[in-house]
Every structure is written in C-alpha cells, then in structure tokens.
Amino acid sequence: MSSELNIDRIARLARLKLTDDEKQKLAPQLAKIVDYIDLLGELDTSDVEPTAHILPVQNVFREDDPVKNFPEADYLSLAPKPDKGHYEVPKIIG
C-alpha cells in the first residue's frame, strides 16, 4: 500500500542527513512500519466518534495573570551559543 515512501523527502522534513547505505536500509523498514499501521484502516470506524483527546476533559484554562516563574533561571546558558542576550544560530536568510 504505502510502500512508495520517498525517503529523501522524509529525511529532509526531519532534518536528517542519511547516507545512501542508510537510505537503502531504512526505506524498506519504514515502509513496513507504515504498512503495519495501515492495518488500522481495515477497522470499521463508521460508528465511532473521532477522538479529540484521549481524556474526557475539556475547557482547561488559566487566568491571564503574569507570573515570572523561576526568575533566577538562566535558560540562555543552556544554549550551545548564547550571545548578547540572544541564542546564536546558523545564518537563516542571506
């Protein structure tokens, strides 16, 4: 069924750099997994309401009150390249 997987496209979407060997090895494995999941499609779910959430809970809200959680925390220091109060990353648009 879905064995026609485009491994290059999937790798690009997941930001994975795969070697040709890896692609050859992974493509059939992925196709198998997807085929297996497709088994679900054989079930007759016409009488089942679509599940919005696994818990029967709705409308969980917070009030709009500002709170500074963990004021001492220095998240920036966890980053590979903090610089001048910013997170430095590879150049995006040239």
């Binding site: 390249k81 610089d83 001048k84 910013h86 997170y87 430095e88 990353v89 590879p90 150049k91 995006i92 648009i93």
Partner: peptide, 8 residues
C-alpha cells in the same frame, strides 16, 4: 556582530 549567524 557575526554576519554568518542569526540571533533569536
């Protein structure tokens, strides 16, 4: 400062 970077 660094033209080869972006800052978030």
């Amino acid at each position: 400062g660094n033209p080869e970077s972006s800052y978030v």
